[in-house]
Simulated assay, not measured.
Amino acid sequence: MIDDILDTDMKPLGKEAWGRVLSPVNKADLFKDSGAPARHVRGIHPPAGIDHMRLKTTDVFRIPGMGEFDVDFSGFFKVIRSDPSTEDWKTATVYVNFLELKLFGEHDQLGEISVDLNPNVVSAGNTFPGRRETVACRINVAARFHVERLGKTFFNKTPIQLMNEDVQGIPTIGEGGQAHVASLPLYDWERPNGELFGYVEELNYQVLDYARELEVETMREATKMSEFKALSAERGLRM
C-alpha cells in the first residue's frame, strides 16, 4: 500500500503535473555520509526517501541560424521516491518526483549555461515492469536553460523524458541513458507564446552517486559554473 501519494483529485499548488504527485512529509533527506546507505544494493527496493544525487549530462542544442552546440553539464538533482507497490523487484512500481535540479555548463559561443526546474510544473515519473522482464523507468522533466551570452532563459513545453530500459538499483547509482527529446522545441521564458527559439536534439545522462550536503548547498547558492567553482575552492570541495 503506497500511503505517501497525494489525493488524486488534489492540484499541487496549482501546478501542472507530468506524473503522479508525492508528498514529502515524513521522508528522510539522504546525502552522502548523512543518511544515505553506505553500500548500494541492486535489485532490492529501499524504503521511500528523498535522494540528493550528483548528475552529468551532455546536451545537443540546435538553434536555427546559429548551429548546433554540444554542452557538458554537471550538478545535482533532488528526487523523492515512494515506497514500492510490491516487495518484488521486477513487479513493483515506484513513483518519483523531481524536487530540485541544478546543472552548470559552458560553451565558447554560448557562454555559461545553468539549468533548473520549471517552477510551474511537477517533473515526475515512475519505474515499472518492463516489456522484456526488466525494470524500466521514465521521468518527465520540465527544465529551464539560462544562457548567459544570449541573455535569455529557455524552457520546454513538452517533456524531456529520461529513460532507463533496465534499472539495476534504486537510486540508479552509476546508471544512465538517453532522454527522449526528438527535436524538442525550446521557448523564450519571457515570451512563452512567441516563436520557438531552438531545439534539444540529444540528451545523454548519467547518475553518479549521492552528493554531500555541503556540495548541494554550494550548488544551490551558485547561479553559474564560475560561481560554483569559486565557492567550491573557498570551501575546499573537490570538483
Rank of each mutant, 00 (worst) to 15 (best):
V122G: 02
S23A: 07
K90C: 03
N140P: 06
A136M: 09
H52K: 13
Q178S: 15
L203A: 04
G169D: 07
P185W: 01
G194V: 12
T57M: 11
D59T: 15
D59S: 10
V94Q: 02
T153L: 06
S226Q: 12
V94L: 02
G111E: 12
A222M: 07
Y205L: 04
S82W: 03
V200M: 10
V79G: 14
D116R: 01
E112V: 09
M1K: 06
T172C: 14
V167H: 02
A222H: 11
R149F: 13
E68N: 11
L6T: 08
A92V: 00
V207R: 09
L186T: 13
G65D: 03
G111A: 15
R62H: 05
V147F: 00
L13Q: 07
L22H: 04
P12L: 02
A28Q: 15
G194I: 15
D33E: 14
R62K: 12
D209C: 12
H180R: 10
I173T: 12
D72P: 07
I113N: 02
N126M: 14
F128A: 11
E217C: 03
M225S: 01
G151K: 09
E106H: 13
C137N: 07
D33N: 13
N118D: 11
Q178D: 12
N164V: 04
L186D: 08
R54H: 14
M10F: 13
E68A: 08
D3Q: 06
N26M: 07
V216Y: 08
A38I: 05
S23N: 06
T91F: 07
T93G: 02
E106G: 08
E202G: 05
R131Y: 14
G151Q: 15
G130R: 09
D116G: 03
Y95R: 09
F31V: 11
A124T: 03
W89P: 07
D166I: 00
Y199P: 08
S114G: 07
V207I: 13
H146G: 00
S232V: 07
L55F: 11
L196Q: 11
D188L: 13
P64F: 00
A38Q: 08
E234H: 12
V167P: 02
V94I: 04
I80T: 09
E148C: 10
M219G: 14
V115E: 04
P159Q: 00
I139K: 00
H40M: 15
M66H: 08
L186A: 01
L6D: 03
L196W: 12
L99K: 05
